[in-house]
């Protein structure tokens, strides 16, 4: 009957293990697949990532040099970064915060600012 008492009392008198997110955050481990980004200046818009992407999240427009990823389709498998010939696709360890609208991430050559369009 009282097997749990020890655990419970120990818990009561030690610091809680939950964090008050977002005020306190934990450091990410290195190499965590948190989010995917592409450097538009390095990218050669070959389209290899689009071909190998298992979830068809990446669309590359070779003519206009636009690289688009739909983060709501992306499964963060990391295949694109693995096969990128210029290693321009990078995986960051930070997770993306929740958002209130489904926004695609667009990377375009020469235009440094981030453009956004609704899905």
């Amino acid at each position: 009957m009282f097997a749990m008492v020890k655990n419970v009392i120990k818990n009561l008198f030690s610091r809680p293990s939950t964090r008050l997110f977002p005020y306190q955050t934990r450091e990410f481990f290195p190499n965590v697949r948190g989010s995917i980004d592409n450097d538009p200046e390095v990218c050669i818009y070959c389209g290899a990532c689009q071909m190998r992407c298992p979830s068809e999240a990446i669309v590359v427009n070779r003519a206009e040099k636009v690289w688009t990823i739909n983060p709501y389709k992306c499964i963060l498998c990391g295949v694109c970064a693995q096969i990128c010939p210029k290693k321009s696709i990078a995986i960051h360890s930070e997770y993306v915060h929740p958002q209130s609208s489904k926004v695609k991430k667009i990377r375009q050559k020469k235009v440094v600012e981030e453009a956004q369009s609704h899905a």
């Binding site: 481990f29 190499n31 965590v32 697949r33 499964i75 498998c77 990391g78 995986i91």
Partner: peptide
């Protein structure tokens, strides 16, 4: 799992 594989559940 997160540390070794980069993901917590579906570690691929």
């Amino acid at each position: 799992m997160e540390m070794t594989a980069g993901s917590r559940v579906i570690i691929s």
